[in-house]
Design a protein around this nucleic acid. Structure first.
Lengths: 238, 238
DNA sequence: GTTGTCTGATTGTCTGACAACTTGCTAATC
DNA sequence: GATTAGCAAGTTGTCAGACAATCAGACAAC
C-alpha cells in the first residue's frame, strides 16, 4: 500500500482548479455570486455532481459560501486560507522572504537553545549531504531543504516548524536554481559556508551568534534571489 | 446580500466534521484506509452523495487521498494544512504565543516604519472602540481583534498579515475572557494601556520602541493566559 | 518467482427526483 | 402610498440507482 502514488486527474479536480483560479485571479471577486450549479455543469460539460464536489472543495477551503435557495458566493474576505493558496494568490517572494527572515532568525536562536543530540545529528546529516553534493557537482537542494527543516525541528515548536516548512517550500525553485552547478558555480559554496557557521553556533548553544548567522544567511538568500531574478529575466529575452 | 449570514447546518458538513475529528484525534491515523463510502453512508444514515461531499472537503484540505478502485486513505503526512487545521490538531496556545510574539514584534516595527495616515486612522478607530467599550463596561474583544489586524495591515506584507490574523484567531477565546468585565475587571485596562503605548510609538515611527511595547504586550498576554488558564481550571472544579 | 488474466470491490460520474430554503413579485390591508 | 402576507420560481441539499473507470487480489501459466 503506497499512499503517495500519483493519482489520475478527475473532472471534479479540474473544475475545482478552474473555479479556484477564477477566484484567485479576480475574475470572481469577493462577495460575487458564482454561476448556478446547473450553469457551471453546462459550461464545463460535466454533471451536477462533479460541480457540487468541486464546490465542496472550495467550501472546505473557505473560498466560497453556499446559501441554499440563493446561490454560492465567493467569500468576502477569505480569513483562513492555506499557505499554499496564499502563495498562489501572492507570489511575491520578497514578501515571503521577509516573513522567512523574521521567523527563521528566531528559530535559529531557539534551535541553539533547545537542540538535542538527535537534532544535531539530523542537521549534521543534511550538512554532510550538501558537502557531498558540492564535491560531486550534484544538486544539494533536497539536503538544503532538510537542513532548514532539521533546524526548525530543533526549535521544538510545531507552529514555527510549519511556518518554516511553508516558506521553505516557496523557495524550493530558487534553491534548485541556486544548486545548479553549471549555472551558478559559486552560489552553493557561499551558502554552504553560511550553513556551516550556523550549525557551529547551534552546536555551541550560542543563541545570538546563531541568530546573526541565520540573518546573514537569509540576507544572502535575498541577494541571491535578486541575482537569480535578474539573470532569469535576461535569459528570457534571449 | 449579506455574505456573512450564519448558515444552517447541513449533513455534509456534519459528516465532514466527524471524519475530520476522527483523523485529528488519531482514531484514523495517517495512511489508514477510511471505511468505504457505502459503509460511511450506512454509519451516518445519509446518502452516498453526502459522504462524497464530505470526503471532497477532506480532499481539498489535503487530509485524505482517494484512489479509485481501492479506497480513500488518510494522508500520511499532511504537508500543507491550513492554520485552522493545525490549530485544531495542536491546541498548544503557549506555542502559538511563541510564534505570535516573534511575528507581532517584528510586525510592530514594520508598522512603525511603513504606516500610512490611513493605517493610523484604522488603528486609532479600533483603539477608540476599545476605550468606549471599557467606559461602557462592554466587551472590546472585537475591537481588540481589529487593533491587531490594523497594525498587521500597516506592515504592508500580506504574508505577515495572514500569520498575525491566524494567531490572533487562536487567541480569540482568551481575548473574549480578558474582556469579560465581571470576571477580570483589571485586565482590559492593563492591556489597553499597552495598546496605547504601542500606538504612540507607531505614530512616532519609532521602530525600536514599537517593538519593545509589542514585546511587552505579548509578554502580558502570556502571563494573562497563564492566569486565565489557572482560573478556568479552578472554575471547572466547582 | 514473475507475468498475465480475471473477478470483485471501490471510487468517479451521470441522471432524475424531491426536500428545503431564498428571493422577488403581487395582492390585500391599513 | 406604505406595509404585510402569500405564493411561485429559482437554487442548493439530499436521495437513489445506474454505469464507467480503476484498483487489488487470486489464480493460472510459464
Amino acid at each position: 500500500m503506497t499512499v503517495n502514488k500519483i493519482h489520475t486527474p478527475h473532472l471534479s479536480e479540474a473544475v475545482h482548479r478552474e473555479l479556484e483560479r477564477s477566484i484567485l485571479d479576480g475574475s470572481l471577486p469577493g462577495g460575487e455570486k458564482l454561476p448556478t450549479e446547473h450553469a457551471l455543469a453546462e459550461r464545463y460539460a460535466v454533471s451536477r455532481s462533479v460541480v457540487r464536489e468541486a464546490v465542496a472543495r472550495l467550501k472546505a477551503e473557505g473560498m466560497v459560501e453556499a446559501r441554499q435557495g440563493s446561490g454560492t458566493y465567493v467569500a468576502k474576505q477569505p480569513r483562513v486560507l492555506s499557505f499554499k493558496q496564499q502563495a498562489e494568490a501572492m507570489p511575491e517572494l520578497k514578501q515571503v522572504l521577509e516573513l522567512r527572515r523574521i521567523v527563521e532568525v528566531a528559530v535559529a536562536g531557539l534551535a541553539a537553545e533547545r537542540r538535542s543530540e538527535a537534532d544535531i545529528k539530523a542537521i549534521r546529516a543534511s550538512l554532510t549531504a550538501m558537502d557531498a553534493a558540492l564535491a560531486a557537482g550534484d544538486s544539494g537542494a533536497a539536503a538544503d531543504d532538510a537542513f532548514h527543516e532539521a533546524i526548525a525541528a530543533a526549535a521544538k515548536n510545531p507552529y514555527l516548524q510549519r511556518v518554516v516548512n511553508f516558506v521553505s517550500a516557496q523557495f524550493s525553485e530558487v534553491r534548485r536554481l541556486t544548486w545548479e552547478p553549471a549555472d551558478y558555480p559559486n552560489l552553493p559554496l557561499r551558502a554552504q559556508d553560511e550553513h556551516h557557521k550556523l550549525f557551529e553556533a547551534i552546536i555551541a548553544c550560542d543563541v545570538e551568534v546563531a541568530q546573526r548567522y541565520a540573518a546573514s544567511h537569509l540576507d544572502g538568500v535575498g541577494s541571491r534571489l535578486h541575482a537569480l531574478t535578474g539573470k532569469a529575466a535576461g535569459r528570457k529575452k534571449r
